[in-house]
Write a protein that binds this DNA or RNA. Structure first.
Lengths: 88, 88
DNA sequence: TTGGACTATGTCATTTTTGATCATCCGCAT
DNA sequence: ATGCGGATGATCAAAAATGACATAGTCCAA
């Protein structure tokens, strides 16, 4: 499923034009991205929760050169599936 | 951020009633849940991708009894943040 | 429709998650 | 506004993800 598939669902279920449906999807995704950008957690019961956690990883590996690589800290988005997504 | 926060964004940006805005959010989340239920992966460029992967974990732990617990296989939803969510 | 931009894949060592359970906290439907 | 059902945190050991990079594959804006 890609973004356009979701847009089509909106079109069918609401009768909106493709552009209007696309706008709906973008609005929702953008508001979620913005919340995460502000280090805010998101919790949607029955779907999932997302939250920002500090990144501590220290090493990785460059396969080609077969040597370790230093990984800088930062932030990560932690995802946790909600109940509905656990019953799969 | 909770579901209602997203609904409010839709209300403001579109002028929809709360109920209509809520319906939009539900429609989108449900279509995503349904896709995952069908073992379908979801890929939204710039946001994130979700896909179903087999659960292989074999052990867990019961704190109270302090002993290992066998964990049965199943499915998991793997989440990968898109580019926009990595620039946080 | 097309190509530019973004994602998947494969690799290794270290970091992080997983999973059951209970109590506490909180989303959100009524 | 309330309460019910769902989510979080803590715990430990084993299992899986992370991260850089190049290539192949694909999403999606114009």
């Amino acid at each position: 499923m890609i973004k356009n598939d979701i847009v089509q669902v909106i079109e069918k279920k609401t009768g909106f034009s493709r552009m209007k449906a696309l706008k709906m999807v973008e609005l929702i995704l953008n508001s979620m991205k913005e919340a995460l950008s502000n280090n805010e957690k998101i919790e949607i019961r029955g779907f999932a929760s997302f939250k920002i956690v500090p990144k501590k990883s220290g090493f990785g590996r460059d396969i080609r050169r077969k040597k370790q690589i230093r990984i800088k800290g930062g932030k990560r988005v932690k995802f946790r599936p909600g109940q509905d997504l656990k019953k799969l």
